[in-house]
Design a binder for these strands. Structure first.
Length: 806
DNA sequence: GCTTTACCACTCTTC
DNA sequence: GTGGTAAAGC
């Protein structure tokens, strides 16, 4: 990474005259002048505007290391907020590497993790216990659903999604049920009912000793505001606060930062602080062009108005890109320049143009996926490692087609996010057992396991138990222990008592006071699963899927063991916290030799040698839902921009003319953003206008009338594709589309023991005839390398490929 | 109280 | 194509 900034007229020379930094060379080596400035600047506030790939992580880690190395701060005085746990771990490692030792006591974590840490310490100040549960969005939804039912709020037209969405939004703006009630319009029965629902929801969380995701931030702010002496503790402790991805902070997070950087009330100097008794020094890093979380309350104004918010703030611009080729950057610059209302910023690089961006238009999502798979195979042959290749898409549902083709092509891949392991019902069940042990107040968790596996404890019994607990003013666990007082049938009573006994036994095992200390999480879970017969029940089931579920539970057991290995002192609560706060990227394994599939949102902050941007179609990117939201299309453009700028060397952009959505095939139009990429930067293998199929088969009828009119944005100047076509040609008529879709998806087969050897001739339903060159792999993973006469070389998973030996 | 079946609505992005 | 719910039957 050489310093080539002399050629850039925009730079201002930075004087590093302060003797403090004289022996600091090592930390400044290889940094360009702006990066150096961002590392060495000292003051109350610093905004680093870091374009994509401009080395901001490097700057942040060097800045932290420099603070510690120069004895300007103890590690414990530093709080660094990152966007994901993975980024936090990486930053910790890099700082440790720079300093030559692990910096103990430094807080490097996400907003949520930092807040959980604070809340666990301080919970008892405001009516929670330190073993509170964290509700994920599924839990919140379940709770709201129940409340809507109880209050019969569905009569007012409330849906669960609406209510959870509104509550989340309000919490991100630091409103709670009371403050909302104060300005609610009670003459509107719907609004009045919403107040009731919000109240009931908040009360239920409090009663359950639980916080939802949004609470983690907002309640920490409330805590600081209500207990100044608590706030002061943290204001004194953290003298340097650094926040990454500042453009994606919401109001609650902004307020939290404000609280933390406020000068402590009593003005005594503390230790090594470089700013007397004032507020902590704040460094934020961000790029408003990469703001893609407005939908969850991120407020772009936080970064745009930073200088006004923090007077005396210094701003450093990082525009030199060290990641991508010029072609990729030019495309990114061209696209993002269509967003008005932004500070002009142009990424540039010294590495040269690189290859052109490759474009492809498939007839269907499957055709597109096949293109991706084929290109990945070529990249691989060219020596690129699978883990340097990523495929991005707008919505998780797009993974289906990609996965089908990838499996068939024997490409090793990994889907990040999506239907996450921890969201599966059986995992949720097992986790609910653990939660019930850790937090006996959590009614939601208890309710989930009360009759899972079936114990004959139905809704009627549950209600009785609940009202008994309320009547007596006791917790659920106590109520269960006293089940015999309820006058229920002997079988039900015994079942309740047995479950209570099991939970008590597990609680004793997880008790830190226990002789020998708290038992490892895996032991607690093993006991619960064993004695509840949960896994036994699954294995005995006739439903074939239950076998897979049982295996998932076993997998969870393995996860707990792994957790215990990595965290010998890790408690049950620690485990539950960790699981609640994992992000999709967090289980990205850099060393796995697989292609990564993820949404554009998940891709933020990552980089790959080769990137495939798929589904670049109207209604998908920009997504249909974004059209109605203010600022929606601009945010979608930023999303596209984020995707483009993830690529180092190769960028592939693809779309399909029809897409399976809803179980049926719908017409798809090229995205308006495609036209924004200068034509000379792209090489279309098959542009949206080209009407011939890739295998060279006959042209498909693409001249049917349009399904809907395409109201392109701006432009309107006609074709930009470097083919002879008109823009936005409509797709094939429905019958042909379905045929195509069926031909690819319709065949699930099992060739189990088909023996193939090099030289065999085979026929494939899609690719026609070909010759087997080589067979690799074993058992069900045997792969045939086939040269097809018309479709070229392919790799096929023998077990499931639609092939026959000739 | 449990199980099966049929119909429904929804599907955008996430800590 | 899925997942969740409601009703009917055991």
């Amino acid at each position: 990474m050489s310093d080539t900034t002399e050629s850039n007229p925009r730079i201002t020379p930075v004087v590093v005259g302060d003797s403090r930094f004289d022996d600091d060379d090592e930390l400044l080596d290889g940094l360009n002048p702006e990066q150096r400035e961002a590392v060495v600047h000292r003051g109350p506030a610093l905004l680093i505007v870091a374009g994509a790939g401009s080395g901001k992580t490097r700057v942040l880690t060097h800045r932290i290391a420099s603070l510690i190395r120069n004895n300007e701060a103890w590690p414990s005085q530093i709080l660094a907020i990152t966007f994901t746990n993975k980024a936090a771990a990486e930053m910790r490692e890099r700082v440790g590497h720079l300093l030559g030792q692990v910096a103990e006591g430094m807080w490097i974590s996400t907003f949520h993790s930092a807040c959980v840490r604070i809340l666990r310490r301080e919970a008892e100040n405001f009516g929670f216990t330190k073993s509170f549960t964290i509700y994920d969005s599924q839990d919140s939804r379940a709770l709201v659903k129940r409340i809507i039912k109880d209050l019969q709020a569905d009569a007012f037209g409330f849906t669960v999604a609406q209510v959870t969405g509104k509550i989340s939004k309000l919490k991100n703006e630091l409103s709670d049920a009371d403050s909302y009630a104060r300005q609610a319009n009670f003459s509107d029965p719907q609004d009045a009912m919403f107040v009731e629902v919000f109240r009931a929801y908040s009360r239920a969380l409090r009663d359950a000793n639980a916080f939802d995701f949004d609470d983690l931030i907002s309640q920490t702010v409330f805590l600081f505001r209500a207990f100044p002496q608590v706030a002061e503790k943290y204001q004194r402790r953290f003298r340097h606060i650094l926040v990454d991805e500042y453009q994606d902070t919401n109001h609650a997070q902004y307020a939290l930062i404000r609280e933390l950087t406020r000068p402590p009330e009593s003005n005594e100097l503390s230790g090594l602080s470089s700013f007397g008794g004032g507020g902590a020094s704040l460094t934020v890093v961000g790029d408003s062009d990469q703001s893609i979380y407005a939908f969850r309350g991120a407020d772009i104004r936080n970064i745009v108005e930073f200088e006004r918010d923090f007077p005396g703030a210094r701003v450093v611009l990082l525009e030199q890109n060290y990641r991508s080729t010029q072609n990729i950057l030019s495309a990114a610059n061209a696209v993002i320049s269509n967003n008005f209302d932004r500070k002009d910023k142009k990424l540039w690089t010294a590495v040269g143009d690189g290859e052109k961006i490759v474009g492809f238009t498939g007839y269907s999502g499957h055709d597109e996926a096949q293109f991706v798979a084929d290109e990945i195979a070529k990249l691989r042959e060219g020596g690129m490692a699978y883990n340097q290749i990523a495929v991005f898409y707008r919505t998780n549902s797009q993974t289906r087609a990609l996965e089908e083709i990838f499996i068939r092509s024997a490409l090793p891949y990994r889907v990040l996010g999506g239907t996450k392991f921890y969201e599966r019902a059986e995992i949720k069940d097992a986790m609910a057992y653990l939660t019930s042990v850790a937090n006996p107040f959590d009614a939601l968790a208890l309710r989930r396991i009360l009759n899972t596996p079936k114990r004959g404890i139905g809704p009627a019994t549950e209600t009785q138990l609940a009202s008994f607990a309320e009547r007596e003013g006791i917790g659920y666990r106590d109520a269960m222990r006293r089940a015999s007082e309820l006058g229920l049938g002997p079988k039900v009573t015994a079942a309740i008592l047995q479950l209570a006994g099991l939970l008590d036994e597990a609680t004793a095992l997880a008790d830190p006071e226990r002789p020998g200390g708290e038992a490892p999480v895996s032991e607690v879970l093993a006991l619960l699963m064993e004695k509840s017969n949960y896994v036994t029940m699954l294995r005995a089931s006739r439903d074939p899927q239950d076998e897979a579920r049982a295996e998932n539970v076993e997998e969870l057991l393995a996860v707990t063991k792994e957790f215990n290995r990595n965290n010998p002192d890790g408690t049950l609560i620690d485990f539950l916290t960790e699981v609640s706060l994992v992000a999709a990227v967090d289980d990205l394994d850099d060393s796995s030799g697989t292609v990564s599939l993820m949404t554009l949102h998940t891709a933020k902050g990552l980089e790959y040698d080769a990137v495939f941007l798929t589904g670049v179609e109207e209604d998908l990117l920009p997504h249909r839902m974004s059209a109605s939201e203010p600022g929606g299309p601009a945010e979608e453009r930023r999303l596209f921009y984020v995707g483009i700028t993830r690529a180092r060397k190769r960028l592939f952009i693809s779309l399909a003319m029809t897409r399976a959505q809803f179980g049926e095939t719908a017409v798809a139009m090229p995205s308006r953003y495609l036209q924004e990429i200068p034509a000379e930067l792209m090489d279309w293998i098959q542009s949206p206008g080209m009407a011939t199929s890739r295998g060279g088969t006959e042209p498909r009828a693409l001249n049917a009338s349009r399904g809907r009119s395409y109201g392109g944005s701006g432009g309107g100047s006609g074709s930009r594709w470097n083919s002879d076509s008109t823009f936005g040609l409509p797709p094939a008529p429905p019958r042909q589309k379905t045929e195509w879709a069926n031909r690819v998806t319709g065949q699930v087969r099992d060739n189990g023991d088909l023996e193939l050897v090099p030289g065999d001739r085979i026929t494939h339903t899609d690719f026609g005839e070909g010759r087997v060159n080589q067979v690799t792999g074993e058992g069900s993973k045997r792969v045939a390398h086939v040269s097809f006469e018309s479709a070229g070389p392919k790799k096929l998973l023998i077990k499931i490929a639609p092939i026959e030996k000739l």
